[in-house]
Amino acid sequence: MRSFKVLDESRISKSMLSLFGILFILYIVTGLLDPYNFSIPAIGNIFYLAAALGLLAAGQTICMLTGGIDLSLAMIATGAAFIVSVKSSSGLPIALSLALLYCVVIGAINGLAVGLLGMNPLIMTLGMNAVLIGVFTVGVTTFLRGSSTVPDLLITLSTASIIDTSSWVSESVSADPRSWPVFVSIIDTLTWPFFIWALISAVVLFILIKTGLGRLIYAVGDNARAARLAGVKVWQVQTTAYILCAILGGMGGILLGGQSGAVALSLANSFLLPSIAAVVIGGTSIMGGIGNYKGTMMGTLILTSLSSLLTTLNSSEAVKQMIYGAIVLTLAWIYAKISEGA
């Protein structure tokens, strides 16, 4: 069985290596434009910013591996953050449970519609997106009225470093992170969102590679009929995938909410297309059955570095959009050529 692994991994590592190369080039270019970007705090900041997108893209990866797609993911994320912030007055556990319930219900509806009723996932989730926008627009003035400020604990979990280093450096030095001792900088970059992302990534990778569910996610995406003929109830796998996707999206949304302090209805809007782009760049096929979360993580870091590069360049929103689109397209193209050659 040894040679099995060798073959599989050499194929994957080839594309992973090229993704790493792209990330490295982005890093160098950003650094050359502004040397600050070479510093440890700047690198830490990339991970900090990437965390929320990484969680959304994790959900999208699972969904897309089954051959699906979730275009309602941004509204699921926004909704979860919204519920948590508005309901936090009745206690954080209740608020979080409600948000979880919300994610599970929406994910289950998406998944059941796709799995049991044979809905086209694109249309189902687009429709769900419209429904959710409507529901929350109405909700803001009715059943979800209230302060949309995110509770302090969640803000800490979404923004703070795990170990508070503020007392470690003297007042005079602390203003400029570049002058901190290296170890302080490193500890300071270990933020909660980075930790949460790392933890969840480990769980997602474990599920996809080491569990029966993971096998079935790939199987259903590659050939649903074959899975069915092998005795698999395909709808169960699809529903589970959409629920997992929604939960991951909800977590990403809450993280985003915490990072922005208050929740607006447009909170995660601009993250929907990047969540798909990160998966595509990472080499997961939009038809399902092939790809992995490692690639998506690289895709997430590439996109985040890219937008920090654009910020460094001080580009207007218009230019940002153009370059973003062009680069996503180019990377997808390069990837298609690489995998063609493999």
Partner: peptide, 9 residues
């Protein structure tokens, strides 16, 4: 084709 997952091992 209906019994196999072509892209898997």
């Amino acid at each position: 084709k209906s019994a196999l997952m072509p892209q898997r091992s």
